[in-house]
Amino acid sequence: MTISGWRFTPRLWSTVAAAVVIIIMLNLGNWQLSRAQEKESRQEQLDMLSRQPAVALPTTPVKLEDFRYRRVEAKGAYLPMHTIYLDNKIHHGVAGYHIITPLRIGESSMHVLVNRGWAAADRDRSKLPQISTPDGQIVVSGVATSAVQKTLELSKEMVSGQVWGNLDLERYRGATGLTLQPVMILQQDDVKDGLVRQWVRPDSGSAKNLGYAFQWFAMALAVFIIYLVLSVKRERSESS
């Protein structure tokens, strides 16, 4: 095929190679789009769960998948002697702690961890924030999330008294001897205890997949353009 002195002369091997690469890239892009759609659907379901009435946490063991991101409530009493300070939590650029206290559910032997909120750290890290803990039976409400909270961990033994770098449920059970639900309540009650409860809404993560999909489609287009450029040659004039 010749157009304005340019001849399209593709070679078989380059055509096959370009077709294979482009098909693979398009399939990868479509896969990323499907992953983004799955995450958006899951986020819509989580949003729906968060708008439903709060459900009471039972005294029997539950599955994390059945309660994650749902609004829950638990009636019982705090055990302040087992409070831990989850370190390296930043709020508006200020370092601090998340205050984690177990709540005994009713009169049972079952407990649930409550993330009561954020408190700023003192410049002298040997001084922990003084936290006021209610006595007696109370009702705690909030959003259920995983009781396992991990960031970068250099050693499994990095626990200093009440200050913990990560919250490992099995390690906490071993340290306290408590029977615990696999969920933790992100408290949302309006309690005047000086703690900050501004929980970050989990993102679906679909934007990352959409970005990857765009990259795959862009690379497929680039391969196609390169293939066309390499397959087109200018015809020599008869007079030359």
Rank of each mutant, 00 (worst) to 15 (best):
H92K: 15
E107H: 10
V191L: 14
F67L: 14
T176P: 06
A54C: 04
Q37C: 05
P53T: 10
A36S: 11
D122H: 15
S141F: 06
V72S: 08
L230M: 08
A77M: 06
N88W: 08
K75A: 09
V232F: 03
W13L: 13
G106V: 07
Q215D: 07
V21Y: 02
N88E: 08
T133Q: 07
M219W: 08
Q37G: 09
M81N: 08
I138D: 06
V62L: 10
K89F: 03
G177C: 04
L154D: 10
S50Q: 13
W199T: 03
F8G: 01
R234V: 02
A222Y: 09
D193G: 09
P102F: 02
L230E: 00
E44F: 11
S160R: 13
F214V: 11
P61F: 12
E107C: 03
S14G: 01
I23H: 05
K192E: 13
K233S: 06
V183F: 05
P53H: 11
A121P: 04
L28K: 06
T83I: 02
R70K: 15
R51G: 12
V55C: 02
N209T: 03
R104F: 06
H92M: 14
L154Y: 15
L230T: 00
H82T: 00
T176N: 07
L186V: 06
H91K: 07
I138V: 15
G136P: 04
L154T: 12
Q52G: 05
R116D: 07
T145V: 15
S126E: 14
G174D: 14
F67E: 09
Q32P: 07
I185S: 00
G194C: 14
R35K: 15
A36Q: 03
D189S: 13
T101S: 01
V163S: 00
A220Q: 04
E73H: 14
F8M: 02
S108R: 08
W216I: 06
N88K: 09
S108T: 09
V21C: 11
D189Y: 07
L128R: 01
D193H: 11
S206G: 04
Y172C: 00
A147P: 00
L210D: 07
V200R: 04
S155Y: 08
Y69G: 08
L46V: 15
N166Q: 07
S204M: 07
Q45A: 15
Y227E: 01
L154W: 13
Q162C: 02
A120H: 05
S132E: 14
W6H: 12
V20W: 07
I84V: 15
V229H: 01
T9P: 00
Q188T: 13
K156Q: 15
R123F: 08
L180Q: 12
F8N: 00
P102K: 01
E40M: 11
V223N: 02
D193T: 12
